[in-house]
Design a binder for these strands. Structure first.
Lengths: 133, 133
DNA sequence: ATTCTTGCAAACCCTTTGCAAGCTA
DNA sequence: TAGCTTGCAAAGGGTTTGCAAGAAT
């Protein structure tokens, strides 16, 4: 159970930079394409490995899309929170959910479950997309 | 937008029977294996197609696992609800979440999103597994 | 010098699809 | 008969992995 030490490489720096510059959720492949567009020739597998490492370290947030693709995003807040994502343009708002946290705990207690965790994502259409659509 | 009429075939009957006999969430491959174990030689693609049709008709509930596999389960209640799933044994409790529904609506309204939907799953360890562990 | 990291290509795994033959209604 | 359904095999699409060369510490 020993996490290897992460070394600083130009590839990881480039990946990190792209993730930070992209405000919303993006797939590993998106990030790889963006990297290429900017002139970095980083291998796709390196992108996958770097993102997995960053996610493990809590540096980025992940979201599993309905079709099974994993999306990554730099999170402003390291604490537990949820997302309100625009289905159309991908705009994301980080939302805090004390209500949900409490509800989750209560439901678990009622059914005699412990060691509780949960996943919650909210999808919708943002004001801007509604105006355009 | 015309949903084709579903025909009753022995394959679908067998699949339906297996899904009903398995109480928790199972993957299409699990179901296919169980079918084989019971002597039905149903093709894997047929299992996928049948489960997709059942899910579209609201006859079964689906759950996307972290690794991207889709799990299916016969649901007692056709209405919108969530699940409390035991991480260890897979035991599932269907829970109703008016609190969450309300919270979701409120959050969306606050950020000017409409056409809202959400996904929520709660994971934990059930009393029985705690006793054994 | 050691050990992590990279890149490529190939492998994996779940899932979907094309197509001809088989059934259901 | 008309057209949904099946099964097989092959393709698809995202992700992971083996391995030898290259870097970081």
């Amino acid at each position: 159970m020993n996490t290897p030490i992460r070394r600083n490489t130009k590839q990881r720096a480039a990946i990190s930079e792209v993730v930070q510059s992209l405000s919303n959720f993006h797939s590993a492949q998106d990030i790889h394409a963006e990297l290429a567009k900017r002139g970095s020739t980083v291998g796709l597998s390196t992108v996958y490995r770097a993102l997995a490492a960053m996610a493990a370290d809590g540096d980025v947030d992940t979201l599993l899309r309905d079709d099974g693709e994993t999306l990554y995003r730099q999170c402003a807040d390291a604490a537990h929170h949820h997302h309100l994502v625009c289905r159309q343009c991908g705009a994301t708002v980080e939302v805090d959910g004390p209500t949900v946290e409490t509800w989750t705990q209560r439901i678990a207690a009622e059914h005699d479950f412990d060691d509780v965790s949960h996943t919650l994502e909210v999808f919708g259409r943002c004001a801007q997309c509604r105006a355009q659509g």
